Structures are given as structure tokens and as C-alpha cells.
Simulated scan of single mutants.
Amino acid sequence: MARQLNLDTVWQNFWKEEYLREKMLRCEWHRKYGLLVRAKQKAKAAARLPFTLPTLQPKAPVLPPPVPKAAPAKVPSPVSEASFQTEMYPVLPATRALLYEGISHDSQGRYRYLNTRKLDVPEKRYLFPITTNFTYGWQLGPPAKQELVSCKMCRIESFFRKNGAFAFLDPRDLAL
């Protein structure tokens, strides 16, 4: 469609009326629906703000009843005190010293520390099973060596077929 360059006063008045009519329609719409739109925008903005819980003031600590002076004072053991603070036993100083010797790239430092720590059984590292997965390996003892069955008919050497995926079954591929 070619552009008309010869705009006369009739065309100019037409476009002027169209522009004013669109402007009036926008003003009417804004007057009618503007408050609803602003309310929705405020609700969306309030939903995006993070919800914060009110802070509670700490309660006054309950004081235990006074201990009679005749009773001897108990010295808390480090293991029972550590159980309240962490779920792991403290690391031996010799094992901890491995952290500061060399770098992991040379199989020293953290790498050697973690490998040494990994060799300990979970009962020596943790005070109690932390997750339910720990129950599978908790207090199993040393691993028992399994002996292989000498019957060749019962053992399949490979999961895959020897003749390819789409070939016919070979009787040697089946355990009978």
C-alpha cells in the first residue's frame, strides 16, 4: 500500500478526531478500572515481599534448685559434653595434623585427611546414627569375604549378549 502524501484538511480532521477519540477512551478506561489495577499491583507487590515472623524475646532461664554443699561436684566428661554440641567424636590430633601437611593436588592435606577419616568405621566417627541410611552400616563388624561358586552353569560372566543387542539368543547367554 502506497503512502499518501497529499493530505488535505479532510484527512487531517479525520486523524485528529481518531486521536482524540482514542485519548477519551483511554481516559474513560482509566477512570473506570484504574483503582482495580492499582489494587492488584499492590497485592502482587505484597506477595513478592518475604514473610518475616515476629521475633520472640528469650524467656528467663529456669534456675535449677541449689545443690547442697556436702555433695561432691561432678566433673563433666568431654564425651557427654561433646554430644550436646556435635554428633561426631573429636578427631585425633595426629589425624587432624594431616590437614596442614601439603596440598590436596599432591594427595596430601585435605585429601589424605579425608581418606584417613574414611577408613574408620562409623561407630568410631559418630556418637549415634544420624540418618536412617546409617542403620544399614551401623555395627556390622569387619566385612566377610564371599567365596565364588565354582559351578560355571550358575554364573553369568556378562550381563550383555555376546552376539549384539538385536541378534537371536544364543544358548550360551542364558543361565540354565
Rank of each mutant, 00 (worst) to 15 (best):
K16T: 14
L119D: 14
K152G: 10
L114Q: 14
S83I: 05
L7F: 13
P64Y: 00
L169D: 15
K124N: 10
P58V: 09
M153E: 14
Q57A: 15
V62N: 08
P142F: 12
L140A: 07
K42Q: 05
W15A: 15
L53D: 11
R161T: 02
K74S: 12
P54F: 00
W29N: 07
D173H: 00
P66T: 08
P143E: 05
T132V: 13
R172Q: 10
P64W: 00
K152Y: 05
R48L: 13
A46V: 02
L5W: 00
T116M: 09
R38G: 08
A73P: 02
N133T: 14
R96Q: 11
P122Y: 00
R96S: 12
L25V: 09
T135D: 10
P129W: 00
D120R: 05
G164C: 04
P129I: 05
W29R: 03
I103R: 10
L25G: 07
C27S: 09
D170Y: 04
S104I: 07
S80H: 03
L20K: 02
Y100R: 09
E17H: 01
L140H: 03
V62G: 09
G141W: 03
P66L: 06
W15R: 10
P58S: 11
L53S: 13
H105D: 14
L49K: 06
S104P: 09
K16N: 14
N133K: 05
R3S: 06
D106T: 04
K118I: 12
V10C: 08
H30L: 11
E17I: 11
S107R: 05
L20V: 05
R161K: 08
Q146D: 13
A71C: 06
K162D: 15
P64C: 02
W15C: 15
A39H: 01
F159M: 15
